Computed example of a mutant assay.
Amino acid sequence: MKDPVQFNTTSDYVYHQLRNQIITKKLRAGQRLPEITLAKQLEVSRTPVREALRRLANEGMVQLIPNGGARLLAPTKEEIVGTYEVRDYLERLAVKKAASRITPLQICRLEEQIELEEKSFQERDLESYLEVNNSFHRIIAEASGNIILADYIDNVLSRTYVFLVFYETFFDFQTNPSLDEHRAILKALSDHDEDLSVKLMEDHLSLSLKGLAP
């Protein structure tokens, strides 16, 4: 076992090792995850591997097959398009409401997320980048003032997070188009421009969907 000391349990260690391999695309969508093989690779017993796979399944990254082991999720194009259709509807509503309600503090928090997003992109830290990106959208949902809407958006962000982990290719580019899109949305929100905020969010999500290639 390598560097297990920093983790509370062996299961926690296995979980982080597997999650890192997924994030860095060392493991691919649809790939089988045999417990015996993983246990040998990580120098642990099968029990913590099984527990880690259950945890990843709860996050939507792994599919547990009855009497068939586990494999990484392989979302279909139809599932991705359907999820983005829902996300587009919810986030356009959220940004519309946020445009008239957003506070100076929430504006500052969005500015901070953009700075962190730029840093994580430069460092090619995909996991950090995706977390920061989701935080940007969660703050807007929060600014809508509708906690039910924010809860639905949080759920759909978790789903699209998995798609981005498996299929996003923006680290193949030298610059990140999402940064400018987020800056434009922030400017529209700061100006309390409802129509422009909605249009920019719609365009942003449309481009995000196009960047996925299952």
Results as ranks from 00 to 15, higher is better:
Lys2Met: 05
Val86Thr: 15
Ile185Met: 02
Ala94Met: 02
Leu93Ser: 09
Lys210Arg: 14
Leu105Asn: 14
Asn134Pro: 04
Phe121Cys: 00
Arg159Ser: 13
Tyr167Lys: 04
Glu123Ser: 10
Glu127Asn: 07
Asp203Leu: 15
Ser206Gln: 13
Pro48Gly: 01
Ser128Val: 10
Asp151Gln: 15
Ser45Met: 04
Leu149Pro: 01
Thr175Asp: 13
Lys210Gly: 09
Gln21Leu: 11
Lys26Ser: 11
Thr175Leu: 10
Leu27Tyr: 09
Glu123Cys: 07
Gly145Arg: 08
Arg124Gly: 00
Tyr15Asn: 02
Gln63Asp: 14
Ile185His: 01
Leu212Glu: 04
Leu200Phe: 06
Glu51Ile: 12
Leu205Met: 10
Arg87Cys: 04
Asp88Val: 13
Arg32Ile: 11
Ser144Ile: 10
Val162Pro: 08
Gly82Pro: 04
Ala143Leu: 07
Gly68Tyr: 03
Gly211Asn: 08
Arg32Met: 13
Leu205Pro: 06
Phe171Ser: 04
Leu196Ala: 13
Ile22Thr: 05
Met1Ser: 10
Ser135Ile: 09
Ser178Lys: 13
Thr10Asn: 11
Leu18Asp: 01
Glu35Arg: 14
Ser208Asp: 12
Leu42Phe: 05
Ala184Lys: 06
Asp151Asn: 15
Lys2Phe: 05
Glu194Trp: 06
Asp172Leu: 14
Asp180Gln: 13
Ile153Pro: 05
Glu202Phe: 14
Thr24Asp: 06
Arg92Val: 09
Ser208Glu: 14
Leu56Trp: 00
Ile139Tyr: 05
Leu42Pro: 00
Asp154Tyr: 12
Asp151Thr: 13
Ser206His: 13
Lys77Asn: 13
Met201Ile: 04
Asp125Ser: 00
Gln122Gly: 12
Glu181His: 07
Thr169Gly: 10
Ser178Val: 15
Asn8Cys: 07
Glu142Cys: 05
Ala99Thr: 02
Ile139Ser: 07
Gly68Trp: 01
Asp125Asn: 01
Leu18Trp: 02
Tyr161Cys: 08
Tyr152Met: 15
Tyr84Arg: 03
Thr160Ala: 00
Met201Asp: 05
Glu115Lys: 12
Ala141Gly: 09
Leu116Asp: 12
Lys25Thr: 11
Asn58Ser: 15
Lys199Glu: 14
Lys96Glu: 15
Glu115Val: 13
Arg19Gly: 09
Glu78Asp: 09
Pro177Ile: 03
Asn176His: 07
Ser206Thr: 14
Gln41Pro: 03
Tyr13Lys: 02
Ala150Pro: 06
Leu130Phe: 07
Val49Ser: 00
Asn146Lys: 10
Ala39Lys: 02
Arg46Cys: 08
Ile114Leu: 00
Phe166Ile: 04
Arg159Val: 14
Lys40Gln: 10
Gly145Pro: 07
Thr175His: 12
Thr10Met: 12
Ser206Leu: 11
Thr103Ile: 01
Thr37Gln: 09
Ser206Tyr: 13
His204Cys: 07
Phe7Pro: 00
Asp180Ser: 15
Pro75Trp: 01
Leu179Lys: 12
Gly211Ser: 07
Leu33Phe: 01
Tyr161Gln: 12
Gly82Glu: 06
Ala29Gly: 04
Lys119Phe: 04
Phe171Trp: 06
Val44Arg: 00
Ala94Cys: 03
